[in-house]
């Protein structure tokens, strides 16, 4: 992105900001989509984030990539959007789990799903899991950074991720069984 465009937008040039908007919205929509549960929520996050971006352009010091700066604002907006996730966390040193989670083989499930399927799996995760999954796997945050971002302990962030992982594996295993039965059904009709 041209430096002069950013400077102009920071000084209040709406046309320059539109250029920034047009360029980055499609690139950040994919990010917003995996933090959100629906397309509408992703749209809300983008709207809120771009208003913030406009108001904060003056504070961008041309250090580090502009895209990274914008992306962080979008992610922070998404996190604030789901501030209620905190309630999803448990107390103490015990966890309840679904028995089916254990012993699931590390199969090639992930490789078999389509990217669009994976996105819809992520979108259906409980809020806490989805945020941790996004931050740890896709943004590459450490458990400590996630703890800080979400206002929980490092340990909680870690265990939340491991739960999210189990959850995804379970969904993938479910998908695999489904597709198997589909195949069988198909066979029987032939």
């Amino acid at each position: 992105m041209d430096r002069s465009i950013i400077t102009a937008a920071a000084e209040g040039d709406k046309q320059a900001f539109r250029t920034i908007f047009n360029f980055f919205v499609p690139r950040l929509r994919s990010v917003a989509l995996r933090y959100a549960r629906t397309e509408f929520e992703a749209e809300d996050i983008l709207q809120e984030a771009f208003v913030k971006i406009y108001h904060n352009l003056k504070t961008y010091k041309f250090e580090g990539s502009f895209e990274g700066w914008i992306k962080r604002i979008v992610i922070n907006t998404a996190l604030n959007h789901y501030d209620k996730y905190k309630k999803d966390y448990q107390l103490d040193n015990i966890e309840t789990y679904d028995e089916d989670d254990l012993g699931i083989e590390e199969a090639k499930d992930i490789d078999e799903v389509e990217p669009s399927e994976l996105l819809s799996i992520v979108q259906k995760l409980p809020n806490g899991y989805r945020l941790v999954m996004n931050l740890y796997v896709l943004e590459g945050y450490s458990h400590r950074e996630i703890g800080q971002a979400l206002g929980i302990s490092e340990g909680s962030a870690r265990s939340q991720y491991s739960k999210a992982r189990k959850h995804i594996k379970k969904i993938l295993a479910g998908l695999r069984n489904k597709s198997k039965t589909n195949l069988i059904n198909k066979d029987s009709t032939i």
Binding site: P26, R29, L33, F50, V51, S116, L138
Partner: peptide, 27 residues
């Protein structure tokens, strides 16, 4: 494997103009 599978490539929508008018309205 999740990271590789997740597709972060740009998503183009027809609703961009509508989003822009919301954003500029708020601003």
């Amino acid at each position: 494997r999740i990271k590789n599978k997740m597709d972060d490539s740009p998503v183009y929508k027809d609703s961009e103009d509508a989003l822009w008018s919301k954003v500029i309205g708020d601003i």
